[in-house]
């Protein structure tokens, strides 16, 4: 059940960080083994289960990418150690449309959130990569998440409104 509920989202994170489906599969495997082995360390007072698992997936993927980069460097000494673009084709599995969700979010802010949350950059790496101050990175992350929060709240209200409308129609029809 844990796997069924969370593997697509965790795989999405791993894939965006490492860029290769086969390596992402290895990362997903490591992630679930770590979840299994460290379940007693999960503290529900500190984070939701998904947040805890997403951190494990993100860190495992970053480690795998570092190792891949390290091995590649040893062989060719020319591997680009910066993170890839992460422009991976995705298959949304939760009925959530990315464009709708991100509607209204400043493109520059979205870029920072994508780098830090989905591609495993630290905020200082993102600052270096985008050549913007560290404070600006933090501000953009906060702003993009605020936009998401509003969007999630609006969607909940819209869903509830539609549900009530439907219910009233049913009651009137009866």
């Amino acid at each position: 059940m844990l796997y069924d509920n969370y593997s697509p989202a965790l795989n999405g994170i791993a894939l965006r960080v490492v860029g290769s489906p086969s390596l992402a599969a290895d990362v997903l495997q490591q992630t679930f083994l770590k979840i299994w082995n460290n379940f007693d360390q999960y503290d529900e007072n500190k984070a939701s289960l998904f947040t805890w698992m997403a951190r494990i997936a993100r860190n495992s993927a970053i480690d795998a990418r570092r190792l891949k980069s390290f091995e590649h460097n040893q062989k060719t000494d020319s591997f680009d150690t910066t993170v890839h673009t992460g422009e991976t084709t995705h298959i949304a599995t939760a009925g959530i449309d990315v464009d709708t969700l991100l509607e209204g979010m400043d493109i520059e802010h979205r870029k920072v959130l994508d780098l830090v949350y989905l591609q495993g950059y630290s905020h200082s790496q993102a600052s270096e990569h985008l050549q913007i101050p560290l404070g600006t990175v933090k501000t953009r992350i906060r702003s993009s998440i605020s936009t998401l929060r509003e969007k999630v709240k609006q969607d909940k209200k819209l869903f509830f409104g539609l549900f009530l409308l439907l219910l009233m129609l049913v009651v009137l029809a009866l």
Partner: peptide
């Protein structure tokens, strides 16, 4: 914040290879 990021992650979800589930469960 967790709910917002969870929704963001779900929007970028990618179904893993179906055979991976068995591999992971056997390992575990």
């Amino acid at each position: 914040i967790e709910a917002a990021l969870g929704t963001f992650a779900l929007a970028h979800a990618v179904l893993p290879d179906p055979s991976l589930k068995d591999t992971i469960l056997k390992k575990i």
